[in-house]
Amino acid sequence: MIEFEDVGHSYGERVVLSEVNLRLSERRVAFVGANGSGKSTLARMINGLVLPSTGRVLVDGLDPSRKGREVRRRVGFVFTNPDSQIVMPTAGEDVAFSLRRSGLSAGERAARAAEILTEHGLGGYADHPAHQLSGGQKQLLALCGMLVLDPDVLVCDEPTTLLDLRNKRQFCTLLAGLRQRVVLVTHDLDLLGDFDRVIVLDGGRVVADDEPEPALRHYRKLVG
């Protein structure tokens, strides 16, 4: 359960979120909205990357502002730009980086990393320079870096914006098959057909909160 209680946020004078009240328990939830609607900020609050100026957030009863470490262990985050999420020179090292505090030995970490890469179609790339992977592969690698920690929740902030159509579809199929609860921030409305719940944000407020079809109808009206 992810709860937002009266959440508001501002950067200096600029208010980006106000009076957000949500209880999310569905397996597939999407945040939709125009640029500047506050959806990315809201998503970042789920793992404490941004702390609310007012109100509070609870993830399975834990407050990210106090229990940041515990929350981040449960919540994985995939960002838009794969280039800035890959932190180590090779794919294997990058996935193993996530495990550096797991208590596993270096050998076990490397083996576990290779395993998860193979599972997601990147087998054989463990010693490959990460920057030579294609855009789609890099985003997949970023996902592997999170999945290796086996989180309960996966937040994805426009993970497909920089991908081509084929990679976008591939990434979404993969996302759909995950055990994890997923919170997806996106502009790609066609991806949301089988989602359980779509939340539309505008000007920092929730303006629609429904099943995909009615929620997206509302959103299209809002934009159009």
């Binding site: 950067y11 500047g36 959806k39 990315s40 941004v50 426009e158």
Partner: peptide, 12 residues
């Protein structure tokens, strides 16, 4: 302009 006191700025 907020470089020296820059909190991660965000628009989305």
């Amino acid at each position: 302009p907020d470089l020296s006191a820059r909190p991660a700025t965000r628009t989305g």
